[in-house]
Computed example of a mutant assay.
Amino acid sequence: MAGGRREPMGVGAGLGALLCALHVQAACRVTTVTQELLKEGFHRDLLVEVELGEDAGGCAVAAQMRLPAGIYVDPYELATLQQHNLTKAVLFAAAIDLEAPEYAAGAPVLLLFLERAARSRRRFRAALPVHARYHRPARGTGGALLVLESPELLLCCCHSHLSAECWEPAEVDTPCSSDNTTPCQWYRTKHRPAHEGSMLRVPVGLREHSSLVCALTLLTTGLCSGLILAAACKYGHFSQ
């Protein structure tokens, strides 16, 4: 009899804990993160938008993303944009070779600070120029597909309190803003928010055309060199 009485109590306690966990998880899933590639060609603008499920007044909001090897951010262009207060980002990379092809490049990590949207306390957005790298020629296909991983949402609240059920400390050694040189504690979401990824198709040369391309390149180079040499001999002034 005693054992029969304890079983409903245990089931009830377990069901209550499950419902509580589901309630917390549902409350933390309200946050959404979207990213979109604007423009066409090799030079694009990466737009990141965030809608928080709670008011983050006084907090810095950022998106941390690992770019694929086929996409890079020009550090010189980034420095110019920051000088004109057009964007704010931190690029975690020892060195970026702007001329390196996709197969010889690394995958840098970018921390992009988001600005609060007008007339909203929960919506944030930011845009940053990104560039595609050249790929190896492929056989039977005219393009390579690059997939941008979903960014990780981070909050830095030096004077605010975040819900412990939804946020946990993150190891990011970067100040909350350029005005504060002391690193503050960053937080990441415990429950993965809803994301919308992006894909970029980059034109790729065909291996079947390698012989034709090499022949035309040599022919064009020889022809142009001959024309330059003939012009130099005809119109040039040579001293003894």
Rank of each mutant, 00 (worst) to 15 (best):
V213M: 01
A230T: 13
V202H: 05
G12S: 12
A26H: 15
A94R: 15
V33I: 10
C224A: 15
A56H: 09
M65L: 15
R44H: 04
A170W: 08
G236C: 06
R201T: 11
V130F: 00
G143R: 15
L111C: 10
S177H: 07
Q240K: 12
A194P: 00
Y76H: 14
L38C: 08
R116V: 03
L114M: 07
I96N: 06
G14L: 12
H191Q: 06
V147N: 05
L229I: 02
P193A: 02
A144V: 06
P108W: 03
L78C: 03
M9H: 07
A105L: 04
V213F: 01
C28E: 15
Q185T: 14
V33P: 01
A79E: 11
C224Q: 15
R44T: 01
G236D: 10
T87S: 14
I228Y: 14
L227F: 14
C59V: 04
Y103Q: 14
Q185E: 13
L155Q: 04
A13Y: 07
E149A: 15
V147R: 13
C156R: 09
A62N: 07
Q82A: 00
S150K: 12
T31E: 06
D55N: 14
E99C: 08
R123K: 15
D45T: 02
V24A: 15
W167H: 04
N180L: 06
L19I: 08
A63N: 08
V147I: 09
L86M: 09
R122M: 13
A62K: 10
V61M: 01
K190S: 00
R201K: 09
G16K: 13
G197K: 07
L227C: 14
L112A: 01
A127M: 03
G58E: 04
L18Y: 02
T34G: 02
A170V: 03
E36F: 01
S225G: 10
P101S: 06
G16I: 06
F42H: 09
A94T: 14
N180M: 05
C166Q: 12
A215G: 00
C157D: 10
V73K: 11
I71S: 03
E40R: 08
Q83W: 00
H43Q: 11
T221Y: 08
E165D: 15
Q82L: 00
G197Y: 00
V50C: 05
H84E: 06
N85F: 02
T182E: 12
R66V: 09
R44P: 03
P203K: 04
L110T: 02
A21T: 12
L112C: 01
L227K: 11
N85K: 09
P108G: 03
C214R: 12
